[in-house]
């Protein structure tokens, strides 16, 4: 297990180096001369050259990349071209809002597992058909459609929940500080989470059905085990493995979904930050946001992989 974790951490480092390179290229390849932009409107040629030299923009490509990574390691992500604020501070402020939403969505997503198992155990029953049909419909609705719909009903018509904002401040980094603060989380988390619930429950149902037809389940029954032990002791663990894989891959979609959800609900998180930055061509902020999202994704994936190894001895004990 230790060897497995070390190997995964090593892979993680390589991925992160790759990502810094890509964000660096983003900054480099954007059209226009950054020195001109940095020097400001109406600057003299001399001033532009001075900025270019001062910022090291006249140095060779690899030196610039080296300096970029060094700055990153010191926590320096550059400044917003638009506001002049350090990108690091913008991310520190926005991150809890996004992470709160993502964690809430993942917790809701977990509901899909028992729902899928329930459906599978009562295949073709009324509830199975209902749940499966619902799952397919919800899965097919884009986040923004569902988001605006929920906002219209619960925010505008029923006036139960706030339709935008993040409910700041938080306690313990990401926890809502009060009921009122919590109400800001409900609509976006449900919007994002319920689509994932649909997806996960559908996958869990299929996986459970497949496992329940397998030979080792028949062996377990042939031993005389009770149906409960057959399903939970032998079936469930095997059936949840492929779902975990899917959930891991799906984390990427969750972050993408969080960006759209934040835009829909005007939550000042990383997603909304990137969205605005794109509109303003604020490259340093976009690069910083992408870097953050990648870190988050890679880290979450690592957690999923560790969970995977924990459940499946074939992964854990492999060489």
């Amino acid at each position: 297990m230790t060897a497995y974790i070390i190997r995964r951490l090593f892979q993680l480092v390589i991925v992160l180096i790759g990502v810094t390179f890509i964000t660096f290229m983003m900054l480099k390849l954007v059209p226009g001369d950054p020195a001109v932009a940095l020097a400001g409107k109406g600057a003299t040629q001399q001033r532009i050259e001075f900025v270019r030299h001062e910022r090291g923009l006249d140095r060779p490509f690899y030196v610039q990349y080296y300096k970029y990574v060094t700055r990153l390691l010191h926590g320096d992500l550059g400044e917003s071209l638009y506001t002049g604020l350090p990108v690091r501070d913008m991310i520190t402020q926005a991150a809890p809002v996004t992470i709160q939403l993502a964690v809430a969505a993942v917790l809701i997503e977990m509901l899909g597992i028992p729902l899928g198992v329930y459906s599978a155990l009562r295949q073709y029953s009324f509830w199975d058909t209902t749940l499966t049909t619902l799952a397919l419909i919800i899965w097919g609705i884009p986040v923004f459609v569902l988001g605006y719909f929920a906002m219209y009903i619960f925010g505008l018509k029923l006036n139960l929940l706030p339709i935008g904002g993040a409910g700041l401040p938080y306690i313990l980094w990401i926890l809502p500080s009060s009921w009122e603060s919590f109400t800001y989380l409900i609509l976006p988390a449900l919007t994002l989470g319920i689509i994932e619930v649909a997806y996960i429950s559908y996958m869990q149902r299929a996986s459970m059905l497949e496992v329940s037809r397998s030979d080792f389940i028949r062996t377990a029954r042939a031993k005389g085990l009770s149906e409960r032990k057959v399903i939970w002791g032998h079936g469930f663990k095997n059936a949840v493995i492929p779902v975990m894989t899917i959930a891991g891959i799906d984390l990427g979609a969750l972050i993408g979904g969080a960006i759209i959800t934040e835009t829909v609900f005007s939550r000042p998180g990383i997603g909304l930050m990137i969205y605005h930055a794109i509109g303003q061509r604020d490259i340093a902020v976009i690069a910083g946001g992408v870097l953050f999202a990648t870190f988050f994704f890679v880290f979450a994936n690592l957690l999923v992989d560790l969970g995977y190894a924990w459940v499946d001895p074939r992964v854990r004990l492999e060489d």
Partner: peptide
């Protein structure tokens, strides 16, 4: 019947590769 299974009548199946639980 569950008491009979395993205790009175036990069974060996055709394909040993798939007849055992892979994660137990």
């Amino acid at each position: 019947m569950r008491g009979v299974r395993g205790n009175d009548i036990a069974m060996i199946f055709q394909d040993p590769m798939t007849s055992l639980n892979p994660v137990m």
